[in-house]
Design a protein around this nucleic acid. Sequence first.
DNA 1: GCCAACGTTGGC
DNA 2: GCCAACGTTGGC
Length: 148
Amino acid sequence: MATFLFKTEPGEYSFADLTADKRTTWSGVRNAAALGHLRTAKKGDQAFIYHTGDERSIVGLAEITTAPYPDPDQPATDAPPGGPPKFAVVDLKPLKPCAKPVTLAALKSDPRFTTFALIRQSRLSIMPVPPTLDRIIRDLAGLPLPRG
DNA sequence: GCCAACGTTGGC
DNA sequence: GCCAACGTTGGC
């Protein structure tokens, strides 16, 4: 089981929205690097939900409930004829809010996170979380450890 | 194919 | 509100 970090602007779609919706299709990822990470996701993987803007914190944990599949919002005419779909999405369901949200400041001040993509690449909206950092974040957040 | 101009993200 | 760090676009 791999863990990812998904960024979202809470004014547009927050972890509370996901909790209310029970499930959502995580669409709108257009950045090539973020899409590359998204395509490595597998059903049953998990994702930290990170709020950008004023919150700048990991606020909850979600489960990726589908393999990546072509973005249903993408007009068919945008796809090159016979080519692979340009964009991908996954579905998510909420698992648990963080007992203690993990702030960007906390991660930045922790030397164990200096190589983490969230710190190094400020504009990346989807990234993998290495297992070591995954466990540290769950510990800080009061989230259950990854199964498996 | 290069690269300057422009647009976007997202922290500060 | 500013700006750094990108990505994209379009003229050449």
